[in-house]
């Protein structure tokens, strides 16, 4: 052995004979991982990307009852922009989305901080706060429709207690009905935000808090100045997820208000469904679906960008 290598003259394969092969493996084995992934990739390409493109194509056509392929450019988009109901739906989404996200964040973080004070029965409380997340939005809608019903629900109950002038009839009031969606959605999802924050709090290094205590900071101040800044990523993910839920909200509206009174509580998701499936406006419905996709991307891309960046740096 040592430095000089005996040159092989037996079994002298030409150099690089196998260099084209990408991995030392016997035929099929090398391709198995790719073969296993292939159906999923194909599914993804066809059912996600293909369908997105397909919907985009439909949105450029004048399709009504059935898809047709006579193109009208961006005509459906200008129709959409001129459609009052679309604007109501979009405005509703803004109101609903902003309130839903903010209130969930506030309630979720508060409950998490309170629960983090060595509470007896913490497990039971956590279970109660979080269980609505296991329910279908349809169930949530049915229950809250009943609770918000002026004749039989909360209003009737409080009036029954002797407060005759008590009014809580938002669900029948076109100006207020959108807020009932917020109430039901917050009821369903705020426990989840609590769980996210609690996991974040439990992940924080104890010594940071101890150091702040030694520095003489009060408890609320420690939370506000030391702990919350550490939870920035949690806030970020929570906003991301909640916004996503808000944009996709469909079932809740259907079950709680049916979009009504009139179309006062329409959201883009219900708008799209109504036009594409019941009002024979496939072109218009497709255009609205594309705008929804745009909305999701507008939230998703900055999120993914910062995720990837922080991962590279971190």
């Amino acid at each position: 052995m040592r430095d000089s290598l005996p040159m092989k003259n037996t079994s002298a394969t030409p150099l690089g004979a196998g260099a084209k092969r990408s991995t030392p493996s016997g035929g099929l084995q090398a391709w198995l991982p790719r073969l296993v992934l292939a159906p999923s990739v194909a599914i993804s390409l066809f059912f996600v990307y293909g369908f997105m493109l397909w919907t985009f194509v439909l949105s450029l056509t004048s399709s009504r009852m059935l898809p047709s392929y006579d193109f009208v450019g961006f005509g459906q988009y200008s129709r959409l922009m001129a459609n009052e109901r679309w604007w109501v739906a979009s405005t509703n989404l803004m109101i609903f989305g902003v309130l839903f996200v903010l209130i969930c964040l506030v309630i979720g973080s508060l409950l998490a901080i309170l629960l983090d004070q060595k509470i007896r029965q913490e497990g039971a409380l956590r279970t109660i706060y979080l269980y609505p997340m296991a329910l279908s939005f349809i169930v949530t809608g049915v229950v809250w429709k009943w609770l918000l019903n002026p004749q039989l629900g909360i209003q009737a109950m409080v009036q029954g207690w002797g407060f005759e002038s008590f009014r809580f009839d938002w669900i029948t009031n076109p100006d207020m009905a959108i807020y009932t969606l917020v109430i039901a959605a917050v009821w369903q999802a705020s426990g989840f935000v609590m769980a996210l924050f609690l996991a974040g709090l439990r992940g924080i290094d104890d010594s940071i808090v101890k150091a702040a205590q030694l520095d003489g900071a009060s408890l609320p101040r420690i939370y506000w100045r030391v702990v919350m800044p550490c939870l920035r990523p949690v806030v970020f993910s929570a906003v991301m997820i909640l916004a996503h839920i808000a944009i996709k909200s469909f079932d809740l509206v259907v079950a709680l208000t049916g979009g009504g009174p009139g179309y006062a509580t329409d959201l883009p998701a219900t708008f799209m469904y109504a036009h594409a499936f019941t009002r024979a406006q496939i072109g218009l419905g497709s255009a609205s679906a594309m705008l929804m996709l745009g909305g999701v991307l507008a939230i998703l891309i900055p999120y993914l960008y910062s995720e990837l960046r922080s991962r590279k740096h971190g």
Partner: peptide, 20 residues
């Protein structure tokens, strides 16, 4: 890991492209 170039022999046999 596949090598980019070169050869590996075990007991005189070229195993560069054999499976582990």
């Amino acid at each position: 890991e596949p090598v980019t170039s070169g050869n590996i022999y075990i007991d005189g046999e070229d195993v560069t492209w054999r499976t582990p």
